[in-house]
Design a protein around this nucleic acid. Structure first.
Lengths: 250, 250
DNA sequence: TCAAAAGTGTTTGGTTTACACCCATGA
DNA sequence: TCATGGGTGTAAACCAAACACTTTTGA
């Protein structure tokens, strides 16, 4: 170990970590926030550890605030990853690590049980920030993501699966879209998450039946075609729907 | 500490525990397996810790095998409980503990983040066994359960909530009923879990539409009325339905 | 002026709900 | 023999899927 680390691992609980799959929506694509590790240049999910006096939820909120500069993020715990082998890196990377470039390796050499969260954020409001172990923090489209560090690709896929489930019984969108949006934009979001196309007219009818939307007087101008109405969420009903669940799936 | 403990806490990961809500069905009632703690005589959920080389799932399976003598138990991880205050016992109990009767207190004085599982078992096949910290292991009906140790009542309630959710998209019953059962028995199970009555005829239609039941030639005799058919599960289709999910809720 | 997107409405078919009727059984 | 539980069927209500027509817009 030829470097001194400034990472204060003394403050954290051993063996426990959390990983966040942060979803954003931009250019009609679902994006995920990733970090590039300083030493190995591999990509990873944002994650962190739990302080002595913190709940997992506070820890996740803290981590997300650090990575996106956002408060009040929609967060959902979806699965714990506890395979004893999950922290094993592949041999080539392990060689690099063994070369001693990373002063924090003693902390990372322990076994971690990681709690998976997914988060939904407004792409346009997030300001991606790398953490202590990374030199880049960027949004990536799902199809750009081929390999991730450790079991993070598996974590990402499970998060996506859970997000699709959520569509079936909870409203989504408030966290992923700007305050004002059009019905086609909302539909695109659903289609992107589900990975399939939906009927425009049936989508609108179903969506409106939830009573979580308010149609504004304005329309979105500038598009090449008929100007669509703008909507915003009825937050009171939206929260209720989050609590009580919706009916019918997609 | 005036006693030596035989509990081998060296083998376990610090800070991490698991708690299991074990559901059984008997006398048309939903039952939960509970332990009575040796020292405080409080009731608790069966739980345990994770060995160095174990996944959470293996640990939960091991614990359940110890408590019920059963293998192949349906197990589902439903939530992690990580409130930093969750391990705080109430003052009266704390006094008892402080009196020093319990030699394992040093292990229990640490903060635990507990992973909640619920399990579904065949009541008639389970053989409840207390663990190292308890002197009794018994089935309790939901309405008998008023207080539990720590936050275990909260864990139980969350498990129940999740079990009800599961009814909406997965088959249930194979794990809770004997091999052969009648349609009314299956319906009672659903009604008990949901806490509401269902229409007999619509229930049967819906259930049969899932194609997970096989009607046997035999009927259940001995009842005071018309003898109902016996059914068994079509395991192949049952597994498929577990995987792919069902449609329509209750 | 026209292609493409958006607003609105209708037809159709399946699913769920709410029932009615008959049969079997032991008290 | 009769109250009760169990097997089977059907009409009505509801909901979702598929589709048609009109309007608006900038290129």
């Amino acid at each position: 170990m030829n470097q001194e680390s400034k990472f204060q691992y003394e403050k954290f609980l051993n063996h426990i970590s959390l990983d966040c799959v942060v979803f954003g929506f931009h250019d009609n694509q679902l994006k995920v926030l990733l970090l590039r590790m300083k030493f190995t240049k591999e990509w990873a999910l944002p994650g962190g550890f739990v302080k002595e006096d913190e709940s997992l939820e506070s820890a996740a909120t803290r981590v997300l605030k650090e990575r996106t500069c956002l408060d009040n993020i929609f967060l959902k715990q979806f699965k714990v990853f506890s395979d004893p082998q999950r922290s094993n890196t592949n041999p080539a990377v392990q060689d690099l690590i063994d070369s001693g470039a990373n002063p924090d390796q003693s902390w990372f050499n322990q076994r971690f049980i990681s709690v998976g969260y997914y988060a939904l954020v407004d792409f346009s409001k997030a300001e991606p920030q790398p953490d202590y172990f990374s030199d880049l923090c960027e949004w990536k489209s799902l199809n750009e993501i081929n390999t991730l560090i450790l079991d993070h690709l598996q974590i990402l896929n499970k998060a996506l699966e859970n997000l699709r489930m959520q569509l079936n019984y909870q409203p989504i969108g408030y966290n992923l879209l700007p305050d004002k949006f059009t019905m086609p934009e909302l539909q695109k979001l659903y289609e992107t998450i589900l990975g399939k196309e939906l009927d425009r007219r049936n989508f609108q009818r179903k969506m409106l039946s939830y009573n979580i939307l308010i149609r504004l007087e304005e329309r979105k101008t500038g598009g090449a075609h008929k100007a669509p109405f703008l909507y915003e969420f009825n937050l009171e009903n939206y929260q209720k729907a989050l609590q009580n669940g919706l009916y019918g799936g997609w």
